[in-house]
């Protein structure tokens, strides 16, 4: 009896120490959920989720205040990732981004620009250069393609243009297996009558 009690007390102490050690050793700093979500969000800062940026949305998600399917640029992929992190139920995307939409950047038609600075204010990443009454221009490298500047332009001089393909950003396509299978089918179809003859 005494031994059993001693053993269990001893075990309790050992496991308690282990747990205590683990909690110190493997301590997770900060609010990892919000940060982890923020990391997978596309950081376009487009505000289509109804929050003023990616981080606020991530924080709201971490608190469980919103749905997982609000990130339009991220699409279903990001939605699934979010639901994996938060443990919330995956939901169908309400607004669906065009599939395989090429990345676009804003371009200002500099002939039309009146220098109203409205787009500069709208840009979530300060990717538009310019000053009042002076022509504005988009820093292509920093543009996230959020399209927030498009509607605010009073003279409609901003449009979204896909990044032109050049040898520098050209990608090797994936070998097309469907074609391979099709040709196989064709081959087998061709071969069948032969087989029949044989």
């Amino acid at each position: 009896m005494i031994e059993a009690i001693l053993i269990f007390v001893g075990l309790a102490i050992v496991f308690g120490l282990l747990l205590g050690y683990a909690s110190v050793r493997f301590k997770i700093e900060g609010n990892p959920t919000a940060e982890r979500i923020d990391k997978i969000l596309p950081q376009t800062q487009c505000g289509q989720c109804g929050y003023p940026g990616c981080k606020p949305y991530a924080e709201a998600l971490a608190k469980g205040e919103t749905e997982v399917n609000k990130c339009v640029p991220g699409g279903t992929e990001v939605m699934i990732l979010i639901s994996e992190i938060t443990g919330l139920e995956p939901k169908e995307m309400e607004t669906v981004e065009e599939e395989d939409k090429p990345k676009e950047v804003a371009r200002i038609n500099e002939d039309l620009c009146i220098g109203c600075v409205l787009c500069i204010k709208a840009c979530p990443v300060d990717a538009i250069l310019g000053a009042t009454k002076l022509m504005h221009t988009v820093i292509e490298k920093e543009c996230t393609g959020c399209e927030l500047c498009v509607p605010v332009c009073p003279v409609d001089c901003i449009d979204m243009q896909p990044i032109p393909l050049s040898t520098r950003n050209w990608k090797w396509p994936e070998p097309d297996e469907t074609i391979a299978i099709e040709t196989i089918n064709q081959q087998s179809d061709i071969n069948k009558p032969n087989q029949g003859e044989v």
């Binding site: 923020d38 596309p42 950081q43 376009t44 800062q45 940026g53 990616c54 981080k55 979530p124 990443v125 300060d126 990717a127 490298k141 920093e142 996230t144």
Partner: peptide, 14 residues
Amino acid sequence: KATELAKQRHEFKL
């Protein structure tokens, strides 16, 4: 990288 840049720039703006 672009995402990180966008994030930084957004945070900077904020």
